[in-house]
């Protein structure tokens, strides 16, 4: 395949940045999207140019490190992670536009790399549970109905990639935050900090500058892990009941 790539280049956090066009040729249909970018970067390195910076780690669709807004959609045309996207999803001769996630809370650091530590701070604000010190507890000591365990697990499959924020017209982090609130709110282990968690995580989400939710459903449609917006409804319930009943004045 021969492709034209229209890539966002930005030197650093303060640079204005802009698009640059690149050509790559002889790309195999079986390459992943990131491997295609590796080919481009080898070309650039040979010419002594600065390679295109992009985030990645596992390349297995489990770590949530890869990002990229490809041809108008987060993680490209399929509902998967960019590392799991293959070049067979594109046509020979196509022009592919590649942009970083766009959100005030995700500042661009360089080229396509954005700083997603805002997500870490939301987790730090309340995405944890209290545990007893002492002996190792027995596995399955606390009975949890299978249906609840499954639902909590579904929420827990969020890999924190930020595609929901990237897809949302408001750059809202509701889907991510609701998945993290939900996975713990449903389990017995999560009850100790339940109210505090909802209040603190949402306060942090707001402090980071993520937008509010208009319930467009774009996040759910683009999430590579299929996190459902029923989690957002649950988070809203958690939050509203927490603010009226907690001791936090």
């Amino acid at each position: 395949m021969n492709l034209t790539l229209n890539i966002w280049r930005q030197k650093n956090n303060v640079d204005k940045g802009g698009f640059r066009e690149y050509k790559v040729s002889d790309i195999s249909k079986d390459m992943s999207f990131l491997e295609m970018l590796d080919v481009l970067n080898e070309q650039l390195a040979e010419k002594g140019e600065d390679p295109v910076h992009f985030d990645h780690d596992c390349r297995e669709g489990i770590c949530g490190m890869c990002s990229l807004y490809i041809n108008g959609k987060p993680h490209g045309p399929l509902q998967t992670t960019t590392c799991q996207l293959h070049m067979r999803s594109f046509k020979d001769g196509e022009t592919i536009t590649i942009e970083p996630w766009r959100a005030k809370a995700f500042p661009v650091m360089k080229d396509l790399v954005v700083d997603r530590s805002a997500f870490d701070r939301i987790i730090q604000a309340g995405g944890y549970v209290s545990v007893n010190t002492g002996g190792v507890p027995d596995a399955n000591e606390i009975p949890i109905p299978k249906r609840i365990a499954d639902e909590a697990f579904d929420a827990a499959t969020c890999i924190g990639c930020g595609a929901c924020v990237a897809a949302c017209k408001n750059a809202s982090a509701m889907l991510f935050t609701s998945a993290k609130v939900s996975q713990l709110a449903m389990l017995p282990q999560g009850q100790v900090e339940r109210k505090e968690r909802a209040e603190k995580m949402i306060a942090q989400m707001d402090a980071e500058g993520f937008g509010a939710c208009t319930n467009t459903g774009a996040c759910e449609a683009e999430c590579p892990k299929g996190i459902s917006i029923t989690n957002i409804a649950r988070m809203n319930r958690e939050y509203f009941s927490a603010v009226v009943s907690s001791e936090n004045v």
Partner: peptide
């Protein structure tokens, strides 16, 4: 507030593939 959460717009956005027009233009 929601507009301010995305100061730089996408050059290429296919929002119509993931959400309805009216939900995005309330």
């Amino acid at each position: 507030y929601n507009k301010s959460a995305r100061p730089v717009a996408y050059a290429n956005s296919k929002a119509s593939t993931n959400s309805s027009w009216n939900s995005r233009n309330m």
